[in-house]
């Protein structure tokens, strides 16, 4: 095993080009477990800790450019207003110690369906900025996950940042685990309201081979909200609409039975979380709308 310590982003890209099998390591929260437990013996470890810019974020007009290694703790503490869904998801990641090290880049690189950031990214809308010596490109989050623990990265590419749409409406994130802290998701759900486009986006974790959106549920809800003039009148969403949305979210799952839970429970739980997060976000939206109306 070789340990590569690039001092700059360019050096990192060059190293990855030279050694496409090199495994990037930043927070180490996935890679080191695999090494400690002898599940993996990469030929090269590519340390990204010395590349300071990966820990930076920029808040732009419409989006946040989040460096791949920005730790979850920083997201929770600094980006709650801009990225509320991701901040909530970050807060559910493992433990304080892990949140101090791990970042979204690692979640994306590992592309485990159980990664906590995915549902929030899917719901908010995001693009993954990846780069190689060949050049840079931005992969829409919807195209990023390609299979179980597989993503759209080429062998010589590294994740540099994620561009996440700034919240313009309420966002929520829920995760079911069988412990009240420090738990891997049995399943998870993210939901974001996008009032300007009058759309709702969702993200589901751990209930399909990859993180997925519940597109049929989104389409149904978008139509129902539009039809009822809900975005304007700020009425309470009817229980039947919420139920059908929840059912469609559950139907979007393609889960398995494993040690963490059964497929049928996952489907059920995603439905419950969909209904609750819709209620929370919509209540919040109504509250905001009411305040704005009054002002």
């Amino acid at each position: 095993m070789d340990f590569l310590r690039p001092g700059s982003w360019e050096e990192a890209l060059a190293a990855k080009a030279e050694h496409p099998t090199a495994v990037p390591i930043a927070g180490g929260t996935d890679v080191m477990v695999e090494i400690n437990f002898d599940h993996r013996r990469p030929e090269y470890l590519l340390d990204l800790n010395r590349i300071g810019e990966l820990n930076d974020w920029e808040v732009g007009e419409d989006s946040v450019r989040l460096g791949a290694s920005v730790p979850y703790t920083s997201i929770m503490e600094n980006l709650r207003a801009e990225l509320p869904g991701l901040a909530l998801a970050s807060h559910t990641v493992a433990s304080p110690q892990i949140r101090n090290r791990g970042g979204v880049g690692g979640n994306l690189g590992t592309a485990s369906p159980a990664g906590d950031a995915h549902p929030a990214l899917l719901a908010a809308g995001a693009e993954v900025e990846v780069e190689s010596v060949r050049g840079s490109r931005r992969i829409p989050i919807d195209d990023f996950y390609t299979g179980v623990k597989r993503n759209a990265l080429a062998a010589d590419e590294l994740i540099r940042a994620v561009h996440i749409k700034k919240a313009e409406g309420p966002q929520q994130f829920s995760k079911v685990g069988t412990r009240n802290a420090m738990v891997i998701a049995v399943c998870a759900f993210g939901l974001a309201l996008h009032p300007s486009s009058r759309t709702v986006r969702t993200g589901i974790g751990s209930a399909a081979p990859t993180p997925v959106r519940a597109k049929a549920a989104e389409e149904f809800l978008n139509a129902a909200l539009e039809e009822g003039g809900f975005w304007d009148n700020g009425k309470i969403i009817t229980p039947s609409v919420a139920k059908q949305f929840a059912d469609l979210c559950a139907a979007a799952c393609n889960p398995i039975d494993d040690v963490r839970g059964t497929a049928s429970y996952r489907r059920h739980a995603v439905g419950i979380m969909a209904r609750r997060t819709l209620t929370w976000t919509w209540e919040s939206y109504r509250g905001t709308a009411a305040t704005e109306g009054a002002a």
Partner: peptide
């Protein structure tokens, strides 16, 4: 559910 924010 604790920190996982499953119920209010």
């Amino acid at each position: 559910g604790g920190l996982s924010n499953t119920t209010h």
